[in-house]
Amino acid sequence: MKLYVKNMVCIRCKMVVKQQLKKLSLHYIIVELGEVEILETMSNAQLLEFKTLLLKHGLELLDDKKSILIEKIKKVIIELVHYSDEPAKVNFSDYLSEKLNHDYTYLANLFSEVVGINIEHYVIMHKIERVKELLVYDELSLTEISYKLHYSSVAHLSNQFKKITGLTPSHFKKFKENRQLGIVDP
């Protein structure tokens, strides 16, 4: 039985889902971002209890096709931005269409209608979150981060970062370092 879970975006979420399935004595085949496949068919009582358990952790079981497709779009974006080393020349609209077997225009219109922002903006927001993570880890230079996240240049990354966060990448990094040290810059 395949189930779709909203707000499942990280490894911790996967662990929570696995724990809740275990509580219900259900056996999973796969627990991925936004998707769960279990061996058994759930009774209505189990389904209701699983929904309740998930809600306690900020997760939601989906049952309508549009919501499921939106979560699949988000999953593809999150995997591509946060967990993938896809080649820099990937055309995102083609990649999304191929992964989800739908026309990109349909996916983009549905996403905008339901989520309230367009796919491009959602991708940018996740890329900036990834940039923040990489800046905090301090293992890569801004040039390396720019290349890793497929920006055309460091300037493009910096401009997008400032537009979204209000800070330049170097100010963000300095701000984070000062907060970790307990130092407040005047």
Rank of each mutant, 00 (worst) to 15 (best):
V31E: 09
Y83E: 03
H102A: 11
D85N: 14
T105D: 03
G58H: 12
L142P: 06
Y147V: 07
I124M: 15
H102I: 10
A88H: 03
I38C: 08
V76A: 01
D64F: 06
M42A: 00
E35G: 01
V123Q: 12
K74Q: 07
G34M: 01
L142H: 02
Y137N: 15
Y106W: 01
H82F: 03
S67N: 09
E49I: 00
L69D: 09
T105P: 00
S93H: 09
I145D: 06
E60P: 03
L53R: 10
I70N: 10
M125R: 05
H150A: 02
L140S: 04
I68E: 07
T105H: 05
L62V: 00
K65N: 15
K132E: 08
S97C: 06
K72N: 07
K99F: 01
D138S: 13
I128N: 09
I30F: 04
L33A: 03
H102E: 07
E32I: 05
L110N: 11
L39C: 10
Y104F: 13
L54I: 00
D94N: 15
V81S: 02
L96S: 09
V81M: 02
E86D: 10
A88M: 00
H102Y: 12
F92L: 14
D63T: 14
L59G: 11
D85H: 10
V36L: 04
Y151S: 10
E120K: 15
E139T: 15
T41L: 15
G116S: 05
G34E: 02
G58W: 12
I68N: 08
